[in-house]
Design a protein around this nucleic acid. Sequence first.
DNA 1: TGAATAGTGTCTCTCAGACACTATTAG
DNA 2: CTAATAGTGTCTGAGAGACACTATTCA
Lengths: 230, 230
Amino acid sequence: MPYDPIAFPAVAVTVDLVALTIRDGVLAAVAIRRGEEPFLGEWALPGGFVRAGEDLDAAAGRELTEETGLTADRLHLEQLASYGAPRRDPRMRVISVAYLGLGPDLPLPVAGGDASGARWAPVDELLAADLAFDHHRILADGVERARAKLEYTPLATVFCEPEFTVAELRRVYEIVWGATLDGRNFHRKVTTAAGFLRPTGTTTTRDGGRPAQLYRRGDLQVLYPPMLRG
Amino acid sequence: MPYDPIAFPAVAVTVDLVALTIRDGVLAAVAIRRGEEPFLGEWALPGGFVRAGEDLDAAAGRELTEETGLTADRLHLEQLASYGAPRRDPRMRVISVAYLGLGPDLPLPVAGGDASGARWAPVDELLAADLAFDHHRILADGVERARAKLEYTPLATVFCEPEFTVAELRRVYEIVWGATLDGRNFHRKVTTAAGFLRPTGTTTTRDGGRPAQLYRRGDLQVLYPPMLRG
DNA sequence: TGAATAGTGTCTCTCAGACACTATTAG
DNA sequence: CTAATAGTGTCTGAGAGACACTATTCA
């Protein structure tokens, strides 16, 4: 009997966030140290209740801005999946809608509210340890989604500065995928894919060696044929 | 302040189902005629509350079995996405976790419970009309997911009988994608992809003409390189 | 000058798409 | 026989991967 507005079970809905960036040469995610039970003192993903009258996307965007200060134009935010195992929160039934956020490196989020600490933590480190609730699984799913999306979208560019070189973009792929790519074939691939990159006409020597063209992200939405992981 | 078990807004969580099959040569979805307000008399996707102590996947599987009688071994069921716009249900806040189910053709589901009618309806027909709530969007997302997954998984086989010919499999692709494929290139692609198909050693003439090899689905999980839509 | 990084050219192999051709059944 | 469908062989062009080679800077 769907949609009976009286006899529904008591459920809370939250959004949890897999917020990724590249920091110090590794893929990193925002992790919060829990300031209360359950899982007191353990690391968890940031998240919170969906407010009354608030859309799911809006709730995720709000959480992300609260945690990182990222503004919407510099990042990518998409729904990842929902997690609702009956005992995933020991206190009550909680369904969590997880979101994946990707953005450039930023100052460390400051601790506040219920969380006794927040930091950008290397993803490998988080995945090697335990996380509160089912957040290990959520993080793993988010990282895999990010890896997959680099293959067929220009999303890697959101990890870069607004103007970036081909080598800087390549380093993003290499870090996220944990593989080395041939710089020459990579260069050919991204520069001949129409609409992927828009040349600025200027160059930089910030990476050393011969000056490199600077590019901005182009209008391309889907990269076909895709980039392939080593 | 996440996970405060007292002060959470009143929310109901449902699962909605995009249940697809191939029937009479077209892609069809289960549609329910609503037996009560709101949207009384309109077509909707099947769905219902997640019960206390019930996992999301289990709730989706239960709904699917109730509606179609499909048993788990003959079908594919995966989470699609969650929909939680504040006014998507006019009575109260409802978050819906949508699932995509794919399976072979079955007898028409029988009407029962709150629904005054249920049928397999051609997807094109449903998408050309209006559906209750935001179910048009959910159905469109589900169909697009199914189309995309045929490219890189052997999922098309779940629409077939346990033993099927290459041509029958090709017809699945053609119906779901709405495109014609070259039978000769298709044959080469699926028979040379290691693990996609497992030959039974028997043949059939049920499609007319020269007898065709019968196959079962193989162990392959991901098809690489993928099949391409016309 | 040499070290470092950017970028081009070329070869080979895989594979998709087009399509000629052969194979095996029913009627 | 013909019609229908199954299945093979062959050519072409796009593109990935390997990698030699050239270009342009800094120290």
